[in-house]
């Protein structure tokens, strides 16, 4: 898991960041609280998500075909682990390099299966209130050297963008 890029685009263009805008996407969403606030979005298609669920349940890949309670719980747990590890990593790095305490606390994740555009409009709503640009960090995943078709976005709130800029300016 590594940060690919920190990017920006006009708010009007966020709809396609996790794939085709009018196709249903599966996402796990987790809040970020503490020194910086915002959202983390883990997006994947049905096949990839259900494969992870099978893997966690020790089942043959392709066994799960619908999003039941166990399947949702499996991907939520994956998000919990990935999101928490990601925030810990950022928190430790920023704390070390600014010689201050940067505390980032994850909130319990939620699962949604909805239009990608609808999800992203809502995820970037706080930034849309304050300006015209969307700012986000993109993360890629690999499993034993093979890229996974997951999309992970960190979307800071508008107030945290200013704070983040100050933190980055003060980094060693």
């Amino acid at each position: 898991m590594k940060i690919d890029s920190i990017s920006s685009c006009p708010i009007e263009e966020v709809s396609t960041l996790i794939g085709s805008d009018d196709e249903p996407a599966c996402v796990c969403i987790m809040g970020m609280e503490g020194t910086l606030t915002g959202l983390m979005v883990l997006a994947f298609d049905d096949t990839s998500g259900l494969m992870v669920s099978d893997l966690l349940q020790g089942q043959t890949s392709g066994t799960s075909s619908v999003w039941g309670e166990i399947e949702r719980s499996s991907v939520l747990e994956t998000m919990n682990i990935a999101g928490s590890a990601y925030l810990n990593g950022i928190s430790n790095e920023l704390s070390d390099r600014t010689s201050s305490t940067i505390e980032l606390i994850p909130s319990p994740p939620i699962f949604l299966r909805d239009y990608a555009a609808s999800i992203l409009q809502s995820a970037f709503l706080d930034q849309a209130i304050s300006g015209t640009q969307a700012v986000y960090a993109g993360v890629s995943f690999e499993l034993k050297g093979c890229p996974l078709s997951w999309k992970f976005l960190l979307i800071p709130d508008a107030s945290s963008l200013t704070k983040l800029s100050e933190i980055l300016t003060n980094m060693n």
């Binding site: 805008d21 009018d22 239009y115 609808s118 992203l120 409009q121 709503l125």
Partner: peptide, 22 residues
Amino acid sequence: VGIAEIVVVRNEGILRTLLGSC
């Protein structure tokens, strides 16, 4: 019809948009 977009047409066509909190 994208985010913050306005489109007007006459006679025929389908105008389509995707909505969350918007």
